[in-house]
Amino acid sequence: MFSFETIIDNLPVLIASARYTLLISGLGCLLGLIFGAVVCMGAVSRSRAARRAAAIYVSFFRGVPLLIQLLLAFYLLPLVGVNVPALVAAILTVGLCAAAYISEILRGALNAIPRGQAEAAIAVGLPPRDIWTRILLPQALKISMPSLVNELILLVKASSLVTVVGIVEITRMSQSIASATYRPLEIYLAAAFLYLAINLVIAGVGRTLERRFAP
């Protein structure tokens, strides 16, 4: 029989574990934005080497499944002498992976900014760093807001994969509750609805932001 009691009894623990899901996807998205902006600058740079490097970066992080990237970070970093806690490794990996997607989103948004703006900025003698931080990136961010919110939702779902490196977020927590209570159906469904709730909230906030940022 479907047991709602199991769900109700374990819901507080499950919700508490959601903070790791939020931490990993939130910080991952933030890191992704920062690295993504850098990769994007490389991708549209005049230097051929920088464009090359950005292209390789994007093709690697988009071509190799995140699950494999996580295991790589978890097993290979210690081999080369980098010892970081699993949580840090997970956030970094999610961030690096997100950066590849976000750089492409930003590149698309850059195309939508009239060329004249960058040219005018060069003409009035703004240094390149200011052109990026004051003219191009703020507008690119605004234009790509819907895609970025979408990316954050993807990251919330992707964060379920960090169970493989042993971080107790929603999925891992539901695994251990399921094996303790022998109620996998109820617990995994509860986990699924928890993710759904988080994503619906993010989507709602995203729509509000979009309306506010809309020109």
């Binding site: 964060s159 169970t163 399921a178 995994y188 469904l189 993710y195 759904l196 619906l200």
Partner: peptide
């Protein structure tokens, strides 16, 4: 559509594989 797109594939697999037998 909302449910499938709003939940991680891993959790869907767990529901199906570990929760399925209960149904």
């Amino acid at each position: 559509v909302e449910f499938i797109r709003g939940t991680p594939f891993l959790v869907q697999l767990f529901v199906l594989y570990y929760g399925g037998p209960m149904l």
